[in-house]
């Protein structure tokens, strides 16, 4: 029961924040709504036994990315009523409506299909085990068996299997070590690219960008 309440509260916070990001006129309000969504998701991560990921979510997203957003908003002085009053282009609005409705239909169907597959998995694996006899089961059935999800049909999630930091580190530095190294390359490229972007715009305007840090002057 507690799980249901936690899910309801955190999920409602997530959805309210997401809608707020899309609908708020002021970029500062949008950034704060984004923080609400991110915290709700961190709570859901804790509910899903992903404690390390929840901590990283709060530190990286709320602590770094949103602060970066707020820095840019304040630096540029664009924290005023934004362009919602302009209205979207007609074609854009139709595209968005089609995306929303079609995507909702497809995703509801997908989630229903996934739930059906989950419910059918234990009997499928039992059939497979009977057919194969002593041979190795397929990967899905093996991982389910390992997680203990096949034994008791009352357990909807494999809560007896705790994934802690050491398991993540073992995976990150063995199976995914090349991807991990590529990540460092990506970060270096991002940093260098950002520095070059910022410098080039400084060259373009020369004096105002160097001396006056007040973008309000440039407003029409």
């Amino acid at each position: 029961m507690v799980e249901v309440v936690v899910f309801a509260v955190a999920g409602a916070a997530c959805l309210a924040g997401a809608v707020g990001v899309v609908l708020s006129r002021n970029p500062v309000h949008a950034a704060l709504m984004l923080v609400m969504t991110l915290f709700g998701i961190a709570v859901l991560f804790v509910a899903l036994q992903a404690h390390f990921i929840a901590a990283v979510q709060v530190i990286v997203y709320a602590g770094a990315i949103v602060v970066l957003f707020l820095f840019v908003i304040m630096l540029l002085g664009v924290d005023r009523a934004a362009e919602l009053s302009l209205g979207a282009l007609p074609a854009q609005r139709w595209t968005a409506a089609a995306f929303g409705i079609g995507g909702a239909a497809v995703l509801v169907w997908l989630v229903a299909a996934v739930d059906r597959i989950f419910q059918g998995l234990p009997s499928y694996c039992a059939e497979e085990a009977a057919k194969l006899g002593r041979e190795a089961p397929s990967a899905v059935c093996a991982s389910l068996q390992e997680a203990g999800a096949l034994g008791s049909e009352s357990a909807p999630t494999a809560t007896n299997y705790l994934i802690d930091v050491s398991a993540i580190a073992r995976s990150l530095f063995s199976d995914y070590v090349y991807a991990f190294e590529l990540t460092s390359l990506l970060l270096i490229v991002a940093v260098i690219g950002t520095v070059i972007l910022a410098r080039r715009s400084g060259y373009g305007e020369s004096a105002p960008a160097e001396s006056g840090e007040t973008p309000q002057e440039a407003r029409p």
């Binding site: 799980e3 249901v4 899910f7 999920g11 997530c14 959805l15 997401a18 809608v19 990001v21 899309v22 969504t37 998701i41 859901l44 509910a47 899903l48 979207a88 854009q92 609005r93 595209t95 968005a96 995306f99 929303g100 995507g103 909702a104 995703l107 509801v108 997908l110 989630v111 229903a112 996934v114 739930d115 989950f118 909807p156 999630t157």
Partner: peptide
């Protein structure tokens, strides 16, 4: 009980809201 489908539904809704906002 909170099943995996609930989380998947919530994730799908967040994805759709974000995508719609990106377009609008």
């Amino acid at each position: 009980e909170v099943t995996t489908g609930w989380y998947l539904t919530l994730g799908a809704m967040l994805f759709l809201i974000g995508g719609t906002g990106l377009l609008v």
